[in-house]
Nucleic acid binder design. Structure first.
Length: 331
DNA sequence: GTTGAGTTGTTGTTTACATCA
DNA sequence: TGTGATGTAAACAACAACTCA
């Protein structure tokens, strides 16, 4: 049993698995194959052919890739996502139904300000809070004002927090909005399509859901983080099970080895096989033994365990039928 | 326990500027 | 002296990880 460990493009190492083929290519990740007879011979970046020999044993692949729940362009999603060109034009609440106006706990002015802030666009509202907002942005835009974007974002957040807390009793606590079911569902669907957003998508989605772009951004960040966490837990469980299986297998083999040793001690002539010649298979470069007699097989005891073990100990006996390695079979 | 949001650190890209051939 | 190539530091954006409420 061998382990193939691959860091990088996970879609390449285990192409024998359908699941792997469905992976999004751009997702680089951690991928581990577990099976028998998988011999990775390195993986070049220049598209070189991998040389590996795959046995008939079903391999197990452990996929630690970033979560990609649904392939792109998944047909199950009938929703139109706002980054599609036609949706970009649709306003929330428009009559075509795609631009559903979802009632959110936010103020239109604040939304406009925030969206403009995210866009870096000009602010036009005469609202007083927005004016202070604008002032901050003028500082930001002045270039070498000695103020980082993060500082500014903090200011923006302060403004937004104070604005949000207007309807709060004391306004001291951090305002936490709960997204509606519709909003969450739509974000979920969007996440299935793209687990990252470009600014255009973010803006369009925010517009469609009547949220601030920042809220959409945060939602996606949290979603990615929590998906990763969940996937890590699943992978951890899987690795644990693999470990247990391997431990059990190891224990079993140790036991068999002991049996064989005991057998050898009690029957010293049993293991004396007839003279063999070692030959190297030219294609797979494995050493094969060619026995000149089959008497050993005839004299072998019928113990299943011992027979199995003997097969393991002498895998290239005269019964060895050369099978073309995977790389040959594939070509 | 779930989830929206804030903070901080990291990484990659862009831009302005200085230096050199 | 003007110009293009190159190196460098700062600013910025996006994200992950951690944390709080």
């Amino acid at each position: 049993m061998e382990l193939a460990l691959s860091l990088g493009d996970a879609s390449k190492p285990f192409t024998f698995l359908d699941k792997t083929q469905k992976m999004v290519n751009k997702d680089a990740g951690f991928c581990m194959g577990l099976g028998t007879g998988i011999i990775g011979k390195g993986q070049g970046h220049g598209g070189e052919e991998d040389e590996r020999k795959v046995s008939s044993d079903p391999p197990v692949q452990l996929d630690l890739l970033p979560f990609s729940p649904v392939p792109r362009h998944h047909p199950s999603s009938q929703l139109r996502f706002p980054w599609l060109a036609d949706n970009l034009m649709s306003e929330p609440g428009s009559s075509d139904g795609s631009g559903r106006a979802l009632d959110v706990n936010r103020f239109p002015v604040a939304v406009a300000a925030a969206e403009d802030a995210d866009d870096g666009g000009a602010l036009s509202s005469p609202n007083s809070t927005v004016s202070s907002f604008q002032m901050d942005f003028s500082i930001y835009r002045s270039g070498n004002g000695g103020r980082s974007k993060r500082d500014l974002e903090a200011t923006v957040n302060e403004v937004e927090t104070s604005r949000a807390s207007d309807d709060d009793e004391n306004g001291s606590t951090r305002k936490k909005l709960r997204l509606s079911k519709e909003q969450s569902a739509f974000l979920e669907e969007s996440f299935k399509e793209h687990n990252t957003l470009n600014p255009k998508q973010k803006l369009a989605l925010a517009k469609q859901l009547n949220l601030r772009p920042r809220q959409v951004e945060v939602w996606f960040q949290n979603r990615r983080a929590r998906t990763k966490l969940k996937q890590t837990e699943v992978d951890c469980e899987y690795l644990k099970r693999c470990c247990e299986t391997l431990t059990e297998e190891n224990r079993r083999l140790q036991k068999e080895l002991q049996e064989l040793r005991a057998l050898k001690t009690s029957q010293p002539f049993y293991m004396q096989l007839p003279a063999t010649t070692l030959t190297m298979c030219p294609s797979c470069e494995r050493v094969a033994t060619t026995s000149t007699s089959s008497s050993a097989a005839a004299a072998a005891p019928t113990s299943t365990s011992a027979t199995l073990a003997r097969t393991r100990l002498f895998p290239f006996s005269q019964a060895h039928v050369h099978q073309a390695p995977a790389h040959q079979a594939a070509s």
